[in-house]
């Protein structure tokens, strides 16, 4: 088996008496969607933070394509190839949609020290941004101020920014949240195709989407991975039913 794109080894994070992450080892392999599910407070967000650099684990390592990135900050991990989308949108709300996506293109190009030419006239940046907007279906909102976007459109914009980074792996924190049935379906189809470009670590509460998309699912309860396996395996696992899914899943 080839090396996983992203792997965590025995991550531990405690906040006082609370163990938010308890020896979590999981990996994301090329071409797959690996979903992480679990009840509220299971430590999903803390896990994502440790992978993306916002929270430093007490123990354990994070590796991207075999390279240890545990000591890098958020910015360096983004450069190394981690493309993150947020559960609660982190966007420049006063800027246009295009400007928001261009920020991703600027970060990817790595040259922010340009003071003369108007950014909107830098073709390489606008082309990348427009391409990403077209892929998520936001081209019509290109010049809309971000604050005026609907909740679902902000989700799409988050994904578009991550696309411009051309990351080695996507880390997506509840991309379906608040999308509605139709939006959720479109996003599911989109992510289905996206895994060919780069694998996805998907944290999601929408079980329909998770079971439709995920090649593998890990179940996180009280900071511990209690099961990892295919959708069918997880659905039939007794431990998972007891801890999370309930008897009617």
């Amino acid at each position: 088996m080839s090396e996983p794109v992203l792997a965590t080894h025995n991550l531990v994070k405690t906040f006082g008496a609370l163990t938010a992450t308890d020896k979590v080892s999981l990996d994301v392999r090329a071409g797959e969607i690996h979903a992480v599910i679990g009840p509220n407070g299971a430590g999903k967000s803390t896990l994502i933070q440790q992978i993306c650099g916002g929270v430093r684990p007490d123990q354990g390592r994070v590796a991207l394509l075999g390279q240890d990135i545990s000591d890098l900050g958020t910015q360096a991990r983004a450069k190394a190839g981690i493309g993150r989308t947020f559960q609660i949108s982190e966007l420049a709300m006063e800027d246009t949609v295009l400007q928001n996506v261009m920020l991703g293109a600027i970060g990817a190009a790595g040259n922010v020290w340009r003071f003369w030419k108007p950014a909107l006239n830098v073709q390489s940046l606008t082309e990348q941004a427009d391409a990403a907007l077209a892929r998520v279906g936001l081209s019509a909102q290109r010049d809309t101020i971000c604050a005026k976007l609907s909740h679902g459109q902000r989700r799409q914009l988050e994904v578009a920014i991550a696309l411009t980074l051309q990351p080695k792996v996507f880390i997506m924190d509840e991309p379906m949240a608040g999308l509605g049935t139709e939006g959720s379906k479109i996003m599911t189809e989109f992510l289905d195709d996206l895994r060919a470009q780069a694998p996805i670590l998907l944290v999601e509460h929408d079980m329909d989407a998770v079971f439709a998309l995920a090649d593998r699912i890990s179940v996180l309860v009280y900071g511990k991975v209690i099961a990892t396996g295919s959708a069918a395996e997880i659905r039939s696992s007794k431990a998972v039913r007891d801890a999370y899914l309930g008897s009617d899943a």
Partner: peptide, 17 residues
């Protein structure tokens, strides 16, 4: 553009590197 976006969300700026 980058500085203005950083004002609005520093986390966003870091996340794009």
């Amino acid at each position: 553009l980058a500085l203005n976006a950083t004002r609005q969300s520093a986390i966003r700026a870091e996340t794009v590197g």
